[in-house]
């Protein structure tokens, strides 16, 4: 049933021309797939997908279209070629499904290899009831380390592409603009001001409760970042920027990665392998617990700060796009003449 909805949404996106509705629909798509994940017992994934697919990425896309315009050119190039490629690829995949183990069958190979150990022994080896957390943070801790590095890379990449040196007079100008704008949303501001501490608290809860229920560093980071972004939207970018220093966030982003890495190195120095948390305490299980806590903290810090970096840079770019449009144009002309 949910899947049918998903198909409908996806097809609607294909035919829709207005980018704003396309993005809204893709947010819905994210939310629907999150509910599907719940139905499939993947609560952790659902949590993340709801925060990312329906939350952060929709937000980023919306900010992006305010800068790029929201309508799509109706002309499509080579639709038949594209369709042919798609049909061939899809056909191959369908062909591949025929020999797959039946859906939901407990006899499928993936449930026979490797995983039983996680389910049967993770409690005594790691001492954390949420198996997803123990696999994520310990058995396959290196993957998660890679994941943190990926998000760090993205943050740095966006920074490299969008960061702008801002001139002081712009800030003053934007400030006055913001002030006049936010006079009007007094109630909204008060309500959200009251909500903010709760959101932050909830983020912390998700962060440290990941061992027992769904949640963990990544989800917490996203929620934390969402709180800051909400604040920035309501109180103006410059206020937010004054509260949260840019270079401080960059430092935090790196610190998260470093925290993760140094946990690994500590275990290395203790004569064990990289990311072996057993050495962090006399009792290996307690060590695992501590290790997971620390690395989840590292993940949370990096994710939250990178999300904030990405958002601030998008938004900062947008403000500059207005004041600096002519400037950019000149730069481009110069660039063109050179080639």
């Amino acid at each position: 049933m949910l899947l049918a909805f998903l198909v409908a949404v996806a097809l609607a996106i294909v035919s829709m021309k207005d980018l704003f509705s396309v993005i809204m629909l893709s947010g819905i798509y994210g939310l629907l797939s999150a509910s599907f994940f719940v139905a499939m017992d993947a609560v952790d994934v659902a949590f993340t997908e709801a925060a990312v697919g329906a939350g952060i990425s929709t937000l980023l896309m919306l900010v992006a279209i305010t800068m790029t315009g929201r309508s799509e050119d109706p002309d499509r190039h080579k639709p038949f070629l594209a369709l042919a490629v798609v049909v061939v690829t899809g056909g191959l995949l369908i062909y591949g499904t025929f020999d797959m183990p039946a859906f939901g069958s407990a006899q499928a190979p993936i449930h026979q290899q490797v995983v039983p150990r996680y389910i049967q022994h993770s409690m005594e080896e790691i001492g954390v009831p949420n198996i997803v957390t123990s696999v994520l943070a310990s058995y396959r801790g290196f993957d998660t380390f890679g994941e943190v590095v990926v998000i760090f890379t993205a943050g740095m990449g966006v920074l490299a592409l969008l960061s702008v040196a801002r001139r002081p007079e712009d800030i003053a100008e934007i400030d006055s603009l913001n002030d006049s704008m936010h006079e009007q949303h007094l109630i909204l501001r008060i309500v959200s001001k009251m909500l903010l501490p709760f959101i932050l608290l909830f983020a912390l809860y998700v962060q440290f409760h990941g061992d027992y229920g769904p949640g963990g560093g990544f989800q917490a980071g996203v929620i934390f970042a969402a709180a800051i972004i909400l604040y920035a939207m309501l109180f103006g970018m410059s206020t937010a920027r004054r509260v949260i220093n840019q270079s401080f966030i960059q430092l935090l982003a790196a610190a998260g990665v470093l925290l993760y890495g140094s946990v690994g190195i500590v275990s290395l120095l203790e004569g064990k392998n990289f990311l072996d948390y057993g050495v962090l305490s006399d009792d290996p299980v307690a060590g695992q617990h501590l290790g997971i806590l620390l690395i989840e903290l590292g993940v949370g810090i990096t994710v939250a700060s990178v999300m904030v970096i990405i958002f601030f840079n998008f938004a900062g770019r947008r403000e500059n796009a207005h004041s600096g449009e002519e400037n950019e144009m000149q730069n481009n002309n110069r660039g063109n003449n050179k080639t």
Binding site: M40, D44, V52, G53, I151
Partner: peptide, 19 residues
Amino acid sequence: YSNPLPHVLILTAIVVGIA
């Protein structure tokens, strides 16, 4: 229990996707 390993992989993949 449902299989936790793909869940872990997809958590990572979602992050890669948003990046």
